[in-house]
Design a protein around this nucleic acid. Sequence first.
DNA 1: GTGGTCTAGACCACC
DNA 2: GTGGTCTAGACCACC
Lengths: 121, 121, 121, 121
Amino acid sequence: MNITIDPASPVPAYLQIVQVIRLAILGGRLKEGDQLPPIRELASLAKVNPNTVGRAYGDLEREGLIEGRVGSGSWIRPPGENRETLRRKLLTAAWNEFLAKAQALGFNQDEIHRLTGRNER
Amino acid sequence: MNITIDPASPVPAYLQIVQVIRLAILGGRLKEGDQLPPIRELASLAKVNPNTVGRAYGDLEREGLIEGRVGSGSWIRPPGENRETLRRKLLTAAWNEFLAKAQALGFNQDEIHRLTGRNER
Amino acid sequence: MNITIDPASPVPAYLQIVQVIRLAILGGRLKEGDQLPPIRELASLAKVNPNTVGRAYGDLEREGLIEGRVGSGSWIRPPGENRETLRRKLLTAAWNEFLAKAQALGFNQDEIHRLTGRNER
Amino acid sequence: MNITIDPASPVPAYLQIVQVIRLAILGGRLKEGDQLPPIRELASLAKVNPNTVGRAYGDLEREGLIEGRVGSGSWIRPPGENRETLRRKLLTAAWNEFLAKAQALGFNQDEIHRLTGRNER
DNA sequence: GTGGTCTAGACCACC
DNA sequence: GTGGTCTAGACCACC
């Protein structure tokens, strides 16, 4: 678990932490039964206040992705029935976000392909 | 000029406005000499306070993209020498951001191609 | 009479005009009996609204430096008894302003002399 | 940190604050790691609204001179590579401004030297 | 009308 | 407490 927080980002620190861990779980790098680092340890690594990590863990728990057991740490929960659907939905959303930005910048289909190196063949 | 602000976003309203206009200028949809809507008009369209739009216009002016003339409105300035470089840099950044997210979600090269419909052939 | 106005300056346009003309009179480049350019002409040269020049002329008139005659233009008035005193006072003020800035920037007496090329001999 | 704002000046309050702090940093009176007074405290000392000081701090941050950390104050950043160049440039600019004004007032080289007391010896 | 600045007062994330 | 953002409302210089 290696998290770097950008304190200048408009995205609040606790949300940056939530996003990194959420992606790690959905991407399978954190699996059912894995233990998350203790709040104070992650806080020290990410150079934020323990309260900030605590809030992030709380959000992930409310989403059903992790489970905190007082006195024994926080753990990754088993995948729900629609985790795969969510994973695909997030990929599509990320792709659309990229496309929108590229088009807003005035690039056409061809230029996008060329500059992102995807005309391999 | 059609801007919708998400008040729930962690990105502050003034920054959302800056980003939309910056992309429109870099993408060529707003050109040298075009006039931006008056602060109060855009504020009313985007449902924010005039001060918020004013701050966004001020940031764009400090970036050299627009120019405000008291009493007569705000205008798009001629492109600087490295606007094209900036445009390409932003495209690459957006692409890398997408790739990072897709990989964090655990998709491999093939899956990414398939789901974003780019192996047409 | 050649005036360039910086519209981005925090000093309002009418004040910039006043200052240039005041210095020209005190410095002797505009003398008793000389005629100032018509308001509309100076406005067009300086690219400002005629009202702005009008206000500047009004201020100079209230200071006793010029005199407007409706229908026949504006004229430089004869020097008052203490114009020489004022001239010296403005020089001293300008010098003190420079010294204050140089010292605020952390330069000592020697460096100031060296960098402003005044240890000739 | 002792700042007096002239509310009658054409230079806006936030800019007066920026200029004082910028000079203090470039002149070395505020050094890397020094803490600026809290926004609300300086606002009270200078008798302006906290927002006005906040805008000044924001400008200094965008210039790279200071850094604000939410919850823990604002700090002087380490000098960039060209701070010395900037310092000299500002001195030269101030000197040229003085010279221009003295000459506009009709003083010649000799008179300037005599009245600013710099031909001592 | 138009941009620019300011005050008073509020709420937020984080310490 | 501390910086950051925002609204409501005001006034200014200039058009």
